[in-house]
């Protein structure tokens, strides 16, 4: 049995420790928001957080998650269910088209803004270049990240 902490909940799974986090989350835990895209960490569709840092779950064994907090797209809204600033910004900018890559995009953007609340264009490019969007919504992703960053800043100033 492997003991996990997923979105703040304690979970146990009986799997080969080499199994990628992606398949444990999707199949064993039945949380399908995290997506399979390439299997070789080249597209970012499977991005989750391990202790707040973005990782490609298709290429990260579940053994590496022991003793760490896994956060998936299902776990980034506020406790009361309010969407996160990033999620709200994504709706406002009407980012998703097919939407398949967006869980990964949002997880990468969330991690970026946690690290750099006001990222430059270069920082956005560096943090997001690992996430492919085949519908080509990169322009809107940039807009949404800047908008979420603005909201974060505004929220801080209010506080």
């Amino acid at each position: 049995m492997i003991k996990l902490n997923v979105n703040g909940q304690a979970r146990e799974v009986d799997v080969d420790p080499a199994t990628p986090i992606l398949w444990v989350v999707r199949e064993n835990l039945e949380m399908t928001g995290t997506k399979f895209g390439c299997g070789i960490a080249m597209c970012g569709a499977c991005t989750v957080h391990l202790d707040g840092k973005p990782v490609r779950s298709c290429s990260t064994p579940i053994s590496r998650a022991e003793g760490k907090a896994i956060t998936t797209i299902e776990g980034i809204a506020e406790d009361d269910g309010t969407l996160s600033k990033v999620q709200q910004a994504w709706i406002e900018a009407q980012v998703p088209q097919c939407g398949y890559c967006q869980s990964g995009q949002i997880m990468s953007a969330t991690a970026l803004l946690q690290k750099d609340p006001n990222p430059s264009d270069e920082q956005i490019d560096a943090a997001m270049a690992g996430n492919v969007c085949r519908c080509g919504m990169y322009g809107r992703i940039r807009t949404a990240i800047k908008s979420a960053a603005g909201n974060t800043q505004a929220a801080k100033e209010e506080a």
Partner: peptide
Amino acid sequence: MPRKDIPSKVNGTAGFGIDAQ
């Protein structure tokens, strides 16, 4: 008009073929 499918595409609840259970 904002698209009605978009909210489900920012929180992981949108159902794709690969998500069938």
